[in-house]
Design a binder for these strands. Structure first.
Length: 467
RNA sequence: GGCGACGUGGCCAAGUGGCAAGGCAAGGGUCUGCAAAACCCUGAUCACGGGUUCAAAUCCCGUCGUCGCCUCCA
């Protein structure tokens, strides 16, 4: 069975066939580093991390490129406001973002190119576009000539005429057509600038991605990804630049993730309704956010709220319940029970791949996992031993890892307090032996209040920090 | 105004032509001294109105609603 991928370009699911058999080249638009990253960025990064992990699981060798836009108007403006050097500002946020990705269990990219390190390629491309008539210089700026590109608008499904009718477009006096976009911007005094045939300046936003793709992945790539808010104008412009420069089809599959919704609105820097990754991780695990994404389709808007997060934490706990060891003193589950577990284990693996192959239907993949967990728990309740449970638990661990879930958890309390909790639990066990229920319940209640959950069984009491 | 997406049980959400996955929450039960955990059982005809079809949540048209893009944005 082949993997099927929904491409924004055709608005259809297509069979995934990479340019080079067994290898995948993948480019995802990273952040512009001018302020703290929010969980919308995390969502996008995580979505493509899941796709990347899955492709690797399916045996592809993935070259994954994610850029940092480290020079742009906003960075310059922010640096000026703060009175700091724009390079240092960007550098600081890049380091912070890297740490976030690590904390979110997102695999590092093969390469993290930066706009400022791509100047030669950028200038080569702009010069080439001018030479071919796709761009023109005007007052030190260089603009892309959209009229010249017959395919312009094909990704976002817009027509030039429709867009020109739009009232929100201002006519720049330097542009031939109001829809022309900047490839190169002349620098004002004091701004970061690079030498070019058109004077000192800096690249426009879109050209850097085209250049980085060319440098690190070549003229044609398999997957180009990003948030769906980048479809227009960013990706539209990227296609225009690259294809007009190379004369070849740029990306085979355009994959876009939906926006994270906070209180019914898109979370974004401009709306100011954002939760930073930092804030999120102070309260929740990376798994919780990932669970949220996995539970839904990556292309749809994702509802984010405390309620939904809480339900995610509970769902994770359920997934982890499958990994718990056998009951103390387990005598072994009957053969029929073990057979059912084996069958479910095989079904889970098959279903998982079948769902994920269908445009990364992670929601279905999670269902496969939950179904397996239920049967594991049934087998355990049936007296299953660790040896009997182990293979299926191994599958849960493996498939969870493919999705990027750590299923870690627990560990959350203060470990220094563990011996004290142990002592109190031992004390309560004594009280229970003497049937001093009131006292023993009092101990349990107080431990509960302190965030410790107790679980009694015939063979003793287990405790854990409440999730 | 233009383009696009979406509207599935209390909540989150798969499914996109053939008897509506999964998770959370809720109720009942088993186990337990009581709890907790686990296990078992219980629930939706898919925004609304037309149409196509032997058959529609799934296709078409219309209405209402929500959201995104059209300016920087993951």
């Amino acid at each position: 069975m082949a993997i099927r991928v929904y491409s924004t370009l055709t608005r259809k699911k297509e069979e995934f066939v990479p340019l080079v058999s067994g290898k995948v080249s993948m480019y995802v638009c990273g952040p512009t580093v001018y302020s703290k990253a929010h969980i919308g960025h995390a969502m996008s990064a995580m979505v493509f991390d899941i796709i990347r992990r899955y492709l690797e699981y399916r045996g592809f060798e993935v070259k994954f490129v994610m850029n940092f836009t480290d020079v742009d108007d906003k960075i310059i403006a922010r640096a000026e406001k703060l009175g700091v050097d724009p390079y240092e500002l960007a550098e600081g946020y890049i380091q912070e973002y890297r740490q976030h990705l690590h904390d979110l269990n997102i695999l590092p990219a093969t390469v993290n190119p930066r706009a400022t390190q791509e100047m030669d390629q950028i200038i080569t491309m702009i010069a080439g576009l001018i030479e071919r008539g796709f761009a023109y210089e005007s007052g030190g700026d260089v603009y892309f000539r959209v009229d010249k590109d017959k395919e312009y608008g094909k990704l976002s499904g817009r027509k030039l005429e429709d867009m020109q009718a739009g009232a929100r477009i201002e006519i720049g006096e330097l542009k031939e057509n109001p829809l022309d976009f900047a490839l190169w911007k002349t620098a004002k005094p004091g701004e970061p600038a690079w030498d070019s045939p058109w004077g000192k300046g800096r690249p426009g936003w879109h050209i850097e991605c085209s250049a980085m793709n060319l440098t690190h992945l070549g003229e044609q790539i398999d997957i180009h990804g990003g948030g769906n808010d980048l479809i227009f104008p960013h990706h539209e412009n990227e296609i225009a630049q690259t294809e007009c420069f190379t004369g070849k089809t740029f990306a085979r599959y355009w994959i876009h993730n939906g926006m994270l919704q906070l209180a019914g609105e898109k979370m974004s820097k401009s709306l100011g309704n954002l939760i930073t990754i930092e804030e999120f991780l102070e309260k929740h695990s990376a798994d919780a956010l990932r669970y949220l994404l996995l539970n839904a389709g990556y292309r749809n808007p994702l509802t984010f709220s405390e309620d939904v997060l809480q339900s995610a934490e509970r769902g994770l706990a359920r997934l982890r319940s499958g990994l718990k060891p056998a009951q103390p003193g387990a005598k072994g589950a009957p053969q029929a029970s073990v057979d059912a577990l084996t069958a479910q284990m095989e079904k889970a693996c098959t279903d998982f791949v079948e769902f994920m192959d269908d445009d990364f239907n992670s929601s279905g993949a999670m269902a496969a996992l939950f179904d397996l967990v239920r049967v594991i728990n049934q087998t355990r309740a049936d007296g299953g031993t660790d040896v009997q449970l182990a293979p299926a638990q191994g599958v849960v661990r493996e498939l969870s890892a493919v999705l990027g879930l750590t299923l870690a958890g627990e560990e959350k309390g203060m470990q220094a307090a563990d011996p004290f909790v142990d002592a109190l639990v031992a004390l309560r066990t004594e009280l229970r032996k003497q049937k001093l229920w009131a006292l023993s319940d009092q101990v349990r209640d107080q431990l509960t209040a302190l965030g410790v959950t107790l679980e009694d069984s015939k063979d003793g009491t287990q405790w854990r920090w409440t999730e």
